[in-house]
Nucleic acid binder design. Sequence first.
RNA 1: GGCCUUUUCGUCUAUCGGUUAGGACGAGAGAUUUUCAUUCUCUAAAGAGGGGUUCGAUUCCCCUAGAGGCUACCA
Length: 506
Amino acid sequence: MAERKVRVRFAPSPTGPLHIGGVRTCLYNYLFAKKNGGELLLRIEDTDSQRFVPGAEDYIIEAFKWLGITFDEGVGVGGPNGPYRQSERREIYKIYVKQLIESGHAYYAFDTPEELEAKRNAIPNFQYDSHTRMQGVNSLTLSADEVNRRIAAGEKYVVRIKVEPDEDVEVDDLVRGKVVINSNILDDKVLYKAADELPTYHLANIVDDHLMEITHVIRGEEWLPSAPLHVLLYRYLGWADTMPRFAHLPLLLKPEGNGKLSKRDGDKLGFPVFPLLWKDPKTGDISSGYRESGYLPEAVVNFLALLGWNPGNDQEVFSMDELIQLFSIDRISKSGARFNFEKCKWFNHEYLQKRSDEEVARMFEPILKDKGVQCPFDKLVYIVSLVKERITFPSELWDQTDFFFQAPTAYDEKSLKKRWKEESPQCLRELVEVLKGIDDFSKVVENEQLVLDWVASKGYNLGTVMNSFRITLVGAAKGPHIFNIIDIIGKDETIARVNRALEVIK
RNA sequence: GGCCUUUUCGUCUAUCGGUUAGGACGAGAGAUUUUCAUUCUCUAAAGAGGGGUUCGAUUCCCCUAGAGGCUACCA
């Protein structure tokens, strides 16, 4: 086989918001494509007309835009192999359905869903396959005339693959090695439904991957059991020599308990399982998203990249470019990864520190606006510089800085009990006089030295003075350096806060 | 039930037959900080069980168990 340009695809079904596991699958596809100088396609697999959800497609596109994952071809960007929505490719699939039937690898089946349901109930482990298909109502058991008559009469039929029995089908998986399944356990899967004139996933997937010249199929492990069917389809269609390589990714599991990660886990444990906030168009239910929860896209990408892959050394923090350089399929792990969002938070803290004070200040602006607070931008940057390292999410900014914008309305009991001494009022009254003598509060270092000297000259306990002072300014025993605080709130406000505290605190 | 995959600290993982089994998150303890937080240091913490193969198995093979997936006219 000649060397082909690497082409991979992400092919979600627009049945709702994109699950974080899907995001990881796409990320791995992206990293693999970029690493190998290849291309990534976005294909929308909307062959299930029943489960189509409006808005899901736009959501998917927006989510990857936010994450910095770009597509070279597909829905939203176009390309020479379109259309990229399977619902718009009906006529293409029909050609191959016909080819499969004519070559004897598929057949018409007229069994109704009710009949099949009845068989499943009556016969344990019933499956439509080489052992049972001759009892079905299909083009194998009906005369050609009868088949034609039924089709002409508009009877709803499906087309099923005719799996040849007693054959070991081999899937050479890039992650798991050779996986062999005997064709006897495969059933004659439905490939096409006359009811909506659409193929099922299996056929559409193979036809599109072939036509779009996909070289590597990187997808979740849930597809491993049907991979042999796909191999068979490539063979029956005569495309075995250009069949893509498969790589089945380990699944993302719940943080605790059993099963794979689901929407409910997020709701229950209080972390998002979707990249973006999603509002269900039918029910109006809201599902939280990483973006709206204050996660940085590079943190989400970094966290996800390491869930099932590692570079083989101790490095933990990677830029997208580094991930691209380092990524390789043979370092993908085989077992499912439990989703640990504490680590995700840690990544967010790391990446937030990498952002400049100006950038973080900009994240703070809408929060302040919401609080009805006005603040000059350069002052905001100054404030952010004092508290940035303390926070993991921009949403924590207000709690860390509210005292810069408004005087404390109450004084924390615990702090008072621990830090407010009997001599505090007297010390503070004298401190006010000292502060009054300072003209420029922006001389942080000098002012501190001045106060320190004064405390020493009076023989006061430094901790008592400073902690009491802090409580009057902040309302509690917390916050950044005191002399930065008074620089920001200014002389008048500083003195006013001390005086007010002196009145209120008994 | 059947079939497939998988199994190293609580979690994510390193180790490609010979290591004091390493790192990170989280946890605990100290230090720094006149406050709180940050930061730093240290500590505890793992090869599912049983058989083989081998001079030697976490590593290779088999069995059992656990975990996960699939078993639709869904993807």
